[in-house]
Design a protein around this nucleic acid. Structure first.
Lengths: 226, 226
DNA sequence: AGCAAAGCGGATAGGCCGTTCCACTTCGGT
DNA sequence: ACCGAAGTGGAACGGCCTATCCGCTTTGCT
């Protein structure tokens, strides 16, 4: 009984009925490779690259993940878990405004640490059920967080949930541009956005310093050579 | 004498010594096509696409613009002129703070109107002399604008020129994500950034409304299908 | 009008990507 | 230990891109 009808511990990817041991090992290697490549090159890495990095044939990759979207779903589901967990932590803070500030900073830090995830947070993949379920969970938590933070009077009344999306898109742009050469730039953006979200008189962490001009310039040059 | 030694009215692209009439016509067609494609698809349009859109052979394109960078330089030099002109206008405003606010909004509007230019403003191309000369011109004007706006007490003392670069990168991200489906999203970002730049008590235009949730969602979906 | 040079674009070669097929290998239950 | 099934990766397409070559057309000057 203990092993009968394993209730699909795989948390949500496409219905895959118990892979063979070696296949599962390859699957893991693919995911690890994709995680690495996506993290520091963004989502537009070719499937062929992922296969090469993982040390498997392209056919194997295609068989396991028919489309790039499926792969993304599998790779980022656990990061999306961390995202949802961050919402929960923020809600647990007795001071909702402090929780809100911490949430914004944490999420943007996640984007800075993983270019792929930065992009994922600014997109949606209707077919990726596991991913989207967690996103929705985090979203509902965030709505509650907004409401509580507004009640304290520290979060401006005109703040909306859409503002988070806009921030995620904006920060994704900064991270994509500066990750290599000016890795602190995103902190400045977040610091300023928080200033904009805060009602007059609300407590704010000290403003982050501007990125170094030379570092920022180097980031701009790097962007040039595609 | 009147036609001798035309002093190269071409304003700065690679040294090209008087093209033949038909060649010049083709050059114009290429530039028009590239402008169109870059404007609504961003900079990563293949050279082959540009040639096809322009109705010329790939060889012709290559001959005229050896590298993508040369083409970008030629295409966006006049937009960069407009950018520099915007700085000048802002400096002409008797109220430097109002000039500053107008400048930020105008520049971001330019980004919203042209995805390619949005990217160009967040990058630099050391080899593109014409472009970079104008950028430098605008930059110096902007430094002066900052200084005057700070003197009025309306621009926060901790604002730096680097903040403009960060804003351009952030707005490029928002524009790239939302241009198709939520074309007003960038206004919200800019409104909030201005709030962050403004010293307490400074006059600000009314805050832009959040983008429609459904429009924003559609933008996120579009991003998914690359 | 006629000619040399400038310019054209189709053709070709090489690279990378995604997809599919198939002979071979490995697993795992008996 | 064996054997069927599950899984593998190389090879073979077709598509799209860049770069370069070369025979033909157009231009502009005389």
């Amino acid at each position: 009984m203990s092993t009968t009808a394993e209730p699909d511990p795989s948390d949500g990817a496409q219905p895959r009925g118990e892979l063979r041991a070696d296949a599962e090992r390859n699957r893991e290697r693919i995911l690890a490779a994709a995680r690495r490549l996506y993290a520091d090159q963004g989502l537009d890495v070719s499937m062929a690259c992922v296969a090469r990095e993982a040390g498997v044939g392209k056919a194997t990759l295609s068989r396991r993940f028919a489309t790039r979207e499926e792969l993304i779903n599998a790779v980022f589901t656990d990061r999306m878990d961390a995202y949802a967990a961050t919402t929960a932590e923020a809600l647990a803070d007795p001071d909702p405004w402090r929780g809100f500030v911490g949430f914004i900073r944490s999420v943007c830090a996640m984007q800075a640490a993983d270019r792929g995830f930065a992009a994922v947070l600014a997109m949606t993949f209707p077919a990726a059920k596991a991913l989207e379920a967690r996103r929705a969970e985090a979203y509902h938590g965030f709505l509650e967080l907004i409401s509580r933070a507004k009640a304290t009077g520290n979060l401006r009344a005109d703040f909306t949930a859409e503002d988070l999306i806009v921030l995620l898109m904006a920060n994704a742009g900064v991270v994509a541009a500066t990750a290599d050469s000016a890795p602190g730039a995103w902190r400045r953006l977040v610091g300023q956005m928080l200033r904009a979200y805060a009602a007059p008189g609300a407590d704010l962490p000290p403003m982050e310093p501007s990125p170094e001009p030379t570092a920022l310039y180097r980031a701009m040059v790097r962007l040039g050579r595609t």
